[in-house]
Design a protein around this nucleic acid. Sequence first.
RNA 1: GGAGGAGUAGCGAAGUGGCCAAACGCAGCUGACUGUAAAUCAGUUCCUUCGGGUUCGGUGGUUCAAAUCCGCCCUCCUCCA
Length: 293
Amino acid sequence: MIYIIGGQTASGKTELALEFAQKIGAHIINGDAFQVYRRLDIGTAKASKEEQSLVPHHLIDIVDINEAFSIFEYQELARKIIDRLVAKNIPVVIVGGSGLYIRSVLFDYRFSPNSEADMARFEKMDNYRLHQYLASIDEISAEKIHFNNRRRVLRAIEIYLQTGLSKSALELEQSKQPYYPYTMVMVDWDKEQLDARILERIRLMFAQGLRSELAELLETFPSSSPGFRAIGYKEMIENANYSDEQLIDLINKNTIHYAKRQKTFFKNQFNISSFTKREEALEFLLDTFKGAL
RNA sequence: GGAGGAGUAGCGAAGUGGCCAAACGCAGCUGACUGUAAAUCAGUUCCUUCGGGUUCGGUGGUUCAAAUCCGCCCUCCUCCA
């Protein structure tokens, strides 16, 4: 059984995870797409070094800001760690807000090894033609993916070019059953409360020196680095002339949008128990843990 | 006191007689999600028993027909006193 703490940003995942993991002697695996980046500390709201020292952490601070990292690497690394811990009978807690990353670990998602596919001719096509092309090689996926969702249409085509199999055919081969048994929990705040927490946290980030964190990093890494696509950093990079207040507004807005997508994903893509209060979630996790012994 | 300008849905903003329950943007709400996922994309937002009903500062008119034209009133802005 692995324990997962998911849900929205600023919902208190980190704190809950630390508390729970300490109580049961678990290791924590980060399930957040941007906490894998070293030195992106303030803006990704990582647990502090002191907090991290309380419980062994994995998949946090593992790549440099200018390195590409994707779900493919994440899945592989996470499974290795989980298998190792499970073999030693150490409980595993995954905490994070990147739902798809977590899904790829929990379920039978199979990613083909990266191979070169020449996408140049497709990138020139307009959305409509691109989608028509997809329909000619993979009707099922074409039906599922909206033609305006260019990124996904392109990816589906790329899969076909790389593997010779359509995206939908590959997915049909995969089991629908979870790869690992899991218990997942989230703290579901009222929208108003969560919004207030988000704003408060962004203010805190600025007070903690988010601006200078970025400035220092930009001395070493180009502003186009993958790590800088994280909310908080990208807004500062794109709007170098903004005042703190303007940036806080923008980052706040983007974070609220992000939080909404997270909620939709977690509620609809997982079997998840949601609680209004952190203490209730903790109690539920502890009960589940005891029951599993 | 005088001269101009403006008041449109939660906000911004088009529209200047019928094709207007009213473009577009934002915000909000719902959803999709298998290698950029803190990303990408879609739907939806006056009321409704889905027949229809009530809107464009207020009010009274003109017209077969008004957000659009006319009168009066209210509010705001600029300039002059």
